[in-house]
Design a protein around this nucleic acid. Structure first.
Lengths: 243, 243
DNA sequence: ACCTGAACACCGTTCAAGT
DNA sequence: ACCTGAACACCGTTCAAGT
């Protein structure tokens, strides 16, 4: 791996001491993101990060009390980045809006595994800044649902149900990604057929024709999305009938 | 912690060598489950497990090539245990059946964090045995939906959508559980109010009245369940109309 | 105030023995 | 065939310096 220009790299045995103000929380988190994006969050370790930054390991501890505190900071930045990357959709009616929104929501996590690992698989945001960003976005989305006629409680839960479902799909996708990829395209169905005896499992032996290994493909996701939005339509009709 | 009777315990400095056939895959996985159940999956380490069993660390490596192989075996057993613990429901119509089933599904994971960590947060099952158990259960559930009138493809996806949603809720619950519990009962709403300015976020400042910290409470879960089942009802009506 | 290496307790794993 | 400790490379973190 050739050292890239314009970047602080591990000095090859050079024992130059870093100047005083050369390090900062920002540089550390930036380096950590680079590491996570290229190697995955599991590969982030304090010694590795220090080497990547060309710093002594313990220097990082001046800026972050622990690795966990560093990860919290990364999660917070990831949350901000995520809300910034999410496009805004305008002019759609509520059901099509939700569909577009959560389709993008899922795509974003799948295309940015670093954000996925930090946001989906880690504890909830704590910082004021991250929450403010997040709620700013929620304000838009929930208002949209309220304007469409959803009572406040139903609007909140509509968003949350879809959010939990979408994150569940992303999690599924991620777990299957880290466990070795499926080998041949049709290998999955064959290996399923091996454990399904048509005599004792007549339904399953037909069901596997509609099977995808992860159940987190684009099509799988779309079907669940449709189901949930159909359910919300029903609830909206009932709510309108009541008022 | 007093040593429990009838259990192989760490010998207090005793350097007695274990007899030949005294260890086994079964004893190791049993000890590992005990450790996971009492300490959590993060606390499982090879040295700890060895100490718990009163064995040299390296003895474990005779039975499992690596920690990962051990975890795979644990995951497999957890999957079998899970399907055995899931009650069977009889005599309900399809929508009530799904509600009961996934309610129990979620409860089981919440009440058995060890199973949750191994199944929900780890890679998919690989072994024949686990798959056979799992598909046996799926046979029942999908047949139920097909008998209710769902086309095969829709039946498969109905189950999977609910399964992804329920696991998403469980994940949420688990993440909030490991990150410190919320302090006061009403503290959450107050801390939310701190970042929500009613002037700029009129909708959110009302929405937080319907807010729960995790969005994975029993009520939250039930609402999403209702939404999804409502959506499935719609699809069933359409499918029946088509045929 | 900021950066550093030495040192500690822990981890997963390998290896060359013991019986 | 099965069990063992010594040893290795790695990790997160602390501490007592250096400048």
């Amino acid at each position: 791996m050739p050292p890239r220009a314009g970047q602080t790299k591990a000095r090859a045995g050079a024992s130059t001491r870093r100047p005083r103000g050369s390090l900062s929380r920002e540089e550390i988190t930036r380096g950590a993101f680079e590491l996570i994006e290229s190697e995955g969050v599991d590969e982030l370790s304090m010694p590795r990060l220090a080497r990547h930054l060309g710093v002594g390991v313990t220097s990082i501890y001046w800026y972050f009390r622990s690795k966990d505190e560093l990860l919290d900071a990364l999660t917070e930045q990831a949350a901000v980045r995520f809300t910034e990357l999410m496009p805004t959709f305008n002019g759609y009616i509520w059901d099509e809006h939700l569909r577009q929104y959560f389709r993008a929501f899922r795509r974003l996590f799948i295309e940015n595994p670093a954000l996925c690992d930090l946001i989906v698989l880690r504890a909830p945001m704590q910082s004021q800044e991250a929450k403010t960003h997040y709620f700013g976005r929620l304000e838009r989305e929930i208002k949209m649902l309220v304007d469409a006629g959803f009572p406040m409680r139903e609007a909140v839960h509509a968003y949350m149900t879809l959010s939990v479902y979408a994150r569940g799909c992303v999690l599924q996708d991620r777990l299957y990604a880290v466990a070795g990829q499926s080998t041949e395209p049709d290998g999955e169905r064959k290996s399923l057929a091996a454990v399904i005896d048509p005599a004792t499992m007549p339904v399953m032996s037909e069901a596997i024709n509609h099977w995808s290994s992860t159940f987190a493909t684009d099509d799988d996701f779309e079907m669940g999305l449709t189901t949930i939005i159909d359910g919300l339509s029903q609830q909206l009709l009932r709510a309108r009938a009541r008022s």
